[in-house]
Simulated assay, not measured.
Amino acid sequence: MNLSQLEELSLSSNHLIGNIPSQIGNLTQLQVLALGSNILQGEFPIALYDLDNLQVLDLNSNNLDSTVDMNMLFYKLKSLKYLFLSPNNLSLLTDTKVHTKFPKLSFLGLQSCNLIEFPNFLQNQDQLEILDFSSNKIAGQIPGWFLNLSVELLLCLNFSNNLLTGFDQHPLSFSWTRLKSLDLSSNKLQGPLPVPPLSTRSYLVS
């Protein structure tokens, strides 16, 4: 915690237990923090909000149990490109304010984060390549604006294991030109299904 010039800290896939120490906030030059696939528990540490150079935050597959204010997260971490918070036992506050300047994300993993609706911060995203919202509680229709999200860059989209019923606007085909994997399985889909783009290798709607 005294390595104040450290830019990358990767401790993924070990057997780390306990809380993430608050002293992590001392590492103000960190660009990459990877703590995924451990046994970390406790709250999402507010000290992470002090790492304003952070581009990659990977807390995937731990036992963190708290609420994360996405408005504060995006307000503080303006350089963020990769965000992996799934699966933990986190709940996300996604009612982000209009004036917040959002970082442009490339990878967003929010599997099993107790989401009940499409976060409105997504409407600002046009650089996404991978988006995983699987195993949440998102109900109802996929909004029309979502189908115009990152049209030229999106590669993988996973909405499996939710409560989705269909599309607010029924497109004949999806507009994502590079999409390789689309998983809409284990939902409550009704009505016609759009045709995936020619780039698609996996299209799951079982």
Rank of each mutant, 00 (worst) to 15 (best):
Q23N: 15
G42K: 14
S66Q: 13
Q41E: 13
L92Q: 05
V56F: 08
T28D: 09
F44R: 02
S13Y: 13
I46R: 11
F102D: 15
L16H: 04
D65E: 00
G25P: 01
K78G: 10
P87L: 05
Q55P: 14
T67V: 13
P21V: 12
Y49W: 13
D95C: 08
L27V: 13
S13D: 11
L6M: 03
L64T: 00
E7A: 14
I46Q: 09
V32E: 01
K78T: 13
Q55C: 13
L9I: 13
V68N: 08
Y82F: 15
T67R: 14
Q5F: 00
N89L: 01
V32D: 03
M70A: 13
P103R: 04
N2H: 10
T28M: 04
L90G: 04
L40V: 01
G18H: 06
L73D: 00
D58W: 05
S13K: 15
A47F: 07
L9H: 03
V56I: 12
L83D: 03
E43G: 00
Y49A: 11
G25E: 04
L92A: 06
S66M: 11
I24W: 09
L57R: 03
G25T: 03
N62V: 06
F84S: 12
L80Y: 13
N2C: 10
D50F: 11
M1D: 15
P103A: 00
H99Y: 10
S66G: 03
L6R: 10
N63Q: 14
N71S: 14
V98R: 09
S22A: 15
N2A: 11
G36P: 01
M1P: 10
K81M: 02
T94S: 05
L33G: 05
S12L: 02
L83Q: 08
V98Q: 00
F74Q: 03
N89S: 01
I39N: 12
L83T: 04
I46T: 15
N38T: 09
N26K: 06
D50G: 01
G18E: 04
S4Q: 07
H15N: 14
Q41I: 10
L85A: 10
M72V: 01
G25D: 09
N26A: 06
S4K: 04
L90R: 08
K81I: 10
I17Q: 11
I20S: 03
I39G: 07
Q31I: 12
F84A: 01
A47D: 15
S86Y: 01
T94M: 07
D52I: 11
S10E: 12
Q5C: 01
P103Y: 13
S37T: 02
Y75F: 14
S61Q: 13
S91A: 03
L33T: 00
L85G: 00
Q31H: 05
L48C: 00
I46M: 11
G36K: 09
F102Y: 15
S66L: 01
K78N: 04
L35Q: 02
S12Q: 14
S13N: 02
F74H: 05
N60T: 05
P87N: 12
N63F: 11
P103I: 05
L33W: 13
L80T: 02
S22M: 12
S61M: 06
N26M: 08
A34H: 10
K101R: 04
L27Y: 04
K81C: 15
G42W: 07
